Simulated scan of single mutants.
Amino acid sequence: MIRVLIVEDQAILREGLARSVGDQSDMTVVAAIADASEALDVVLKERPDMILMDVCTEHDSNGIVAAARIKEELPECRIIIMTGMPEITFVDQAREAGVDSFVYKNVGIDELFGVMRSTLAGYCTFPKPPESIFSGTAALDDVELSILRLACEGKSRREIAAELFMSEGTVKRRISEILSKTGYDNIMRLAVHAVTEGSIVPNMERP
């Protein structure tokens, strides 16, 4: 019997997933929780074979951060990250955390079970990052993404410089490069757009 842990903050999705998984003749749900920060304790107690892990969970806990911690303790546990957010860094973060597969929540239940079974068989599934205002020639490097993320959190140029150990002049120059790439004339307008379309999810627990 395949033992499955579900980590999903939305009750209707968590309960629906638990019912669907429980209906499989070869699967059982060992626990269904809302907060990724509690996942490691549950994993060490229940020893699931697989985890379906949301990214944005209760109390701003980050499922990708939780997945990395779990992989350190129980590397054989298969983890599938799920999200409904088109955040441009989630797929790469998940790979770096060592998760096994990644799905967006718009997949059908049959496709999800297909990913679950192929992941258990040792295959990895990762989608391409979604198209956004940062696709193609507007793609930002890691430093630019860090600056934009902090701007999305309402940080001033001085605060961004302090957090990233840069001079304010360097931050100003990098912001100009971000605006040039994206075609915006103001970093706060860009930040509002990025948050509104879900390309950046601010104030999350960071890996």
Results as ranks from 00 to 15, higher is better:
E197C: 15
K128A: 15
F90H: 00
E96K: 15
P48R: 06
G122P: 01
P129R: 06
I178A: 02
F113V: 11
T83L: 04
T119V: 11
E144W: 08
A194G: 08
A94I: 03
E73G: 07
L148W: 07
E73T: 10
A121F: 10
E159C: 03
A121C: 11
A162S: 13
A67S: 11
R14F: 03
A138C: 12
S101R: 04
V55Y: 06
R149H: 08
A18Y: 13
A32G: 02
I178T: 02
T182C: 03
V115I: 14
A161I: 03
T89P: 01
S132A: 10
V91T: 03
C56Y: 12
N186V: 05
I147A: 02
S156R: 02
I12P: 02
I81D: 03
P86V: 09
G154C: 06
A121Y: 07
S156G: 06
A194I: 00
E58V: 12
E131L: 12
G154V: 01
D41A: 11
E153Y: 05
I33W: 10
D23L: 14
V42P: 04
L52N: 06
V195L: 00
E87Y: 04
L179E: 08
N106Y: 11
A18K: 13
A161V: 08
A67T: 01
I79E: 00
I79D: 02
D49C: 02
R158D: 02
G84E: 11
D185K: 09
R78G: 04
K105G: 13
P48Q: 08
P86R: 00
M85G: 01
F134K: 03
P86I: 09
E76V: 11
G84S: 15
A32P: 04
L17W: 02
D141W: 12
N186Y: 06
T83I: 07
E76T: 15
I12V: 15
I12K: 13
P127H: 13
A66F: 02
R149M: 04
V192Q: 13
L179C: 10
D142W: 13
E144P: 03
K45Q: 09
G136D: 15
I51Y: 02
A67K: 00
A121G: 08
C124K: 11
I80T: 05
L179V: 07
E46G: 04
E73N: 13
L17Q: 02
G84N: 14
R19L: 15
I178Q: 03
G98N: 05
A36S: 11
V42F: 07
R78T: 11
K155S: 06
V107H: 05
R173K: 14
V115P: 03
I51Q: 04
N106T: 12
N186W: 01
R117D: 08
M53R: 09
D60W: 09
E72H: 14
Y184H: 09
G122T: 06
D60Q: 15
V99D: 00
A18V: 12
